[in-house]
Nucleic acid binder design. Structure first.
Lengths: 264, 264
DNA sequence: TTGCCTACTTGATTTGGATCAGTTTCGAAA
DNA sequence: TTTCGAAACTGATCCAAATCAAGTAGGCAA
């Protein structure tokens, strides 16, 4: 699986390979260092806002901690862990999921480089879900008390947090609707593509970092249905897919199919 | 329809068999005036935090504006309206819903006295849904720019906003799961009851303020299915229901049925 | 009163997707 | 190499809930 992941990374970005060993200064949106913040991160504007002044810069260093590397299958946090921080994906991908009393898993979301996990833990004050690494990666850990304090000082930071929370709320309610397997699948693929594009990768040619089962669970379908829909999309020429490597041949048509689940 | 609403309110309070909870001193959470804030409102802690000092009190008056009355069917805000404020329900009930390109409606939520609408508008900066009054009511309008400014000054306010957003996020993802009609319906009824109880009403005997069709839409079921499930629950002795008047005879069993959708 | 109209209920039938049951592929371990 | 196991694909069957189709009850206007 690691081999696959490495290939993803190289395809998506520049010239990187052989990544079954986690590499500290690694690919995938990881262009930040102590003085330069990751340009494609959801927190970029925060880090930049904070970073205006010298004193703020030190505040940022208290706030942010680079964690990892994590290997596929490892947990960024566990259901029930006390909430102290939110995380931004620096490299790799993550899924969040809950397991209910009966042992049924529910995948809540997939997170790409530049995206943020843990916002749903603020209210209960502990993580309500697990965050499981799908592709080897590492993360920025933002102390939430420190970030709140900073948000009180810097309006842009506060506003950014409000907006991130609100955005996630909107995304959650889109998926809540009543839609066919085709609609869900098309919307899912287009959404993934657009998110990759936002972070500077190809929006039409990328690697699925999650299993069919995880996709199915996330979309509330059976894994077999996901397989069938993907096969049909392929036979219609909408996509090319081999294993987890995916090409969106006709994003416009996919977007049309999935329009009722997509914003705009 | 207005007649019904009036009746609902009176029934909710007086003819409550089980309720040993102390009755609220005034109807439907509307116990605030210029100097006394609604104790059962989701914003109570905010208003109280703000209201400590005399100067803060005037800040609060700039922030909050009482609007209404609204009649059933009227809109608190429309899809696409520019986002300037969030609203707390002072009296009455509200549904929020989106209409997609094909004209299909999707009910996003129902809001009871003391609850807050509009948080999902922060990110897009315009309301992504309609808010439609189900039972005559009125509202507190909180200017969001003013509230943000206040949040920067008063940590409790900021924290409260974060928590409300995060809470709604958690609620949205619970409903996103894959559940049977019985599970959904049971969880819905228990949840409504608990929310009424939180606001000081009976949690076991109340009026449904929304149609079967709205419930169905919200739960992603057909209206006929809602009818059938309610009938079955009645025949099992779990509930009594006549029109929109509802008694939960066995909340514990309902909670068990719906457990996979409910927190705790 | 009569006649709508809307909300709701109940029964009959259909169906989309789940479930069950192989089969294939591929990578990793022995 | 062989074996094993997980992931994925595909076909056959099943089922929960949607859809179709009446029919009932209550509210309201004329």
């Amino acid at each position: 699986m690691n081999g696959t992941i490495t290939k993803d990374a190289s395809q998506m970005r520049s010239s990187d390979q052989i990544g079954r060993l986690p590499q500290p200064p690694s690919p995938i949106a990881d262009d930040g260092d102590e003085n330069h913040f990751c340009r494609t991160c959801a927190f970029a504007s925060v880090c930049l806002a904070v970073g205006y002044g010298k004193s703020d810069l030190s505040a940022l260093h208290c706030l942010v901690e680079h964690v990892g590397p994590f290997r596929a299958g490892e947990y960024v946090f566990h259901n029930g862990d006390p909430f102290r921080a939110i995380f931004a994906v620096r490299a790799g991908t993550v899924k969040t999921s809950m397991v209910d009393r009966d042992g049924r898993e529910q995948v809540l979301g997939f997170y790409l480089p530049g995206e943020v996990i843990g916002l749903n833990a603020i209210y209960p004050d502990h993580f309500p879900c697990d965050a499981i690494v799908l592709e080897n990666g590492h993360f920025c850990r933002f102390s939430f008390p420190a970030m709140s304090a900073l948000a009180a000082r810097i309006p842009a930071v506060q506003q950014h947090l409000f907006r991130m929370l609100s955005k996630e709320l909107g995304a959650a309610s889109l998926l809540a609707g009543d839609h066919s397997a085709d609609e869900r699948m098309a919307a899912f693929l287009v959404d993934l593509g657009e998110r990759y594009a936002t972070r500077g990768f190809s929006g039409t040619h990328f690697q699925l970092s999650m299993s069919r089962g995880d996709i199915a669970n996330y979309l509330r379908l059976a894994a077999e249905t996901v397989s069938r829909v993907l096969s049909r999309f392929r036979s219609l020429g909408l996509i090319e897919i081999e294993g987890r490597e995916l090409v969106l041949n006709n994003p416009a048509e996919l977007r049309r199919i999935g329009q009722s689940l997509l914003p705009n």
